[in-house]
Design a protein around this nucleic acid. Structure first.
Lengths: 245, 245
DNA sequence: ACTTGACGTAATGTGCACATTATTTTACCA
DNA sequence: TGGTAAAATAATGTGCACATTACGTCAAGT
């Protein structure tokens, strides 16, 4: 009763179910780029102003990110980029090892023709990026390789889980990491794993994957000092929707 | 400007950070009890009235449950108890197999004294419940066994992941399931797995776990017709806080 | 008699205003 | 001048009102 005179009309525009995904993806993308150093406080008004959306939209996205483990929320304090402890890092890589060893074992048991084809195509892409010294592309491909292995198992749940683990484990890779990634691991180890799968050698593939992940966790330790930037700079050109990481 | 005359004061009571966990746990508990048949629509006003909380509180809990995969949300339609397809069920059990095979392998490699003690204590509890024909207790213990194995690996991430998988896979166990669980699997298979771990036989433990999970997924198929009850009845005596499942 | 259209009702989604709490600034005193 | 306390400021948390959308009902037309 007694309707207020204001409130003209047409507020939420149209079916903006994609707006949620947009802000969610934007924050996720910035984190994936490593622009946010651990401990950074993601304050809602700033994000709302930068992303040109309402505060509640930002709020919902932050809650989702917290639930998924990518951010940590302190009651009445705010939402922060988590500083993964060495124990958490070890835990994540241990679970990754369990899953990915099982994955390569399964793929080695019955390497179908489509599996072989996609694996060889991916390795070829990595080799190309390596030859051209395209660090960024190689970095992206290195992550997608592990996702590809999960996808080839034809298990949605597995793919989703591994996606989360991989994102959280490579989140804090600094911008200097691709250099070392190029020097040390590179597409060489990936190629060996694929070769073992194609040869139908589960135990060899499993061993190689274990060694590969051990090498990655060693790389993680050597990250330079985190450069603290303001939120406005971090979210400069991340407004559009694009594809999901 | 122009502050409305109403709005007396003292609205949000006190630090009610526990209220969120309360409604979250209440819904989760009802689902765990199997009172909600797949396809049931969880409407916010009803839950708010039954649980004696505001609609926004219910809303937040539902969003969290959706993000964690225990409910599915259809935009502008509502939140529903998911009817897991056979493919999703297969996927979940496949991932569980991967993780739990790795778990028992790891535990078999170096069974510490504390590990041995807790495992034997758990098996003793299961035997007691089985002897007393306490179906409910045995059902709960059967689930906790798998969680216990994960906890003994001393990996928080692993425990959290397996908790989610197990809850989702045993969520739709009907009330008649404990009967068959008692007849078929029972504490016998669990005891064999523990024995293999204590003997330090990783391959045998892994094989037993694989067979055990295969048996469980076979049990899942034989669930009776879902009894549809109203939300008011389902949430009858689930208001208090209690412990988390 | 069955289908199709419009209308009424109820539930979901969202912006907004306010209360509460933490943080920073400032003023005062030892 | 350094330290402490209090006020100001800003950010988070939440209830509420309203818009939008879907569902159920009924009536009219073919």
């Amino acid at each position: 009763m007694a309707p207020r005179p204001r409130k003209p009309a047409a507020r939420g525009r149209k079916g903006d179910v994609a707006a949620d995904e947009a802000v969610y993806g934007a924050i996720r993308r910035v984190m994936h780029m490593g622009r946010l150093s651990p401990g950074t406080k993601l304050q809602e008004p700033v994000l709302a102003r930068v992303l040109k959306v309402s505060r509640e939209r930002v709020r919902k996205a932050l809650h989702r990110l917290v639930h998924e483990g990518w951010l940590t929320a302190v009651p009445n304090r705010g939402t922060f980029v988590p500083a993964l402890s060495v124990e958490e890092m070890r835990d994540i890589y241990d679970v990754r090892t369990m899953l990915e060893e099982a994955i390569v074992r399964r793929l080695s048991d019955r390497p179908g023709s489509q599996v072989m084809q996609r694996l060889k195509a991916h390795i070829a892409e990595e080799r190309t990026a390596n030859r051209r010294n395209d660090r960024g592309r190689l970095f992206a491909l290195s992550g997608e390789f592990h996702i590809l292995l999960a996808e080839l198992c034809d298990n949605e749940e597995l793919t989703k889980l591994l996606r989360g683990l991989l994102t959280r484990s490579t989140m804090h890779f600094s911008l200097a990491a691709p250099q070392r990634l190029h020097d040390c691991a590179g597409p060489h180890e990936h190629g060996d794993i694929v070769q073992a799968i194609l040869d139908g050698k589960p135990e060899r593939a499993s061993k190689l994957m274990l060694a590969h992940l051990h090498g990655l966790v060693a790389l993680q330790s050597t990250r330079p000092a985190a450069q603290t930037v303001s939120l406005d700079e971090a979210f400069r050109d991340v407004s559009p929707i694009r594809s999901r990481a």
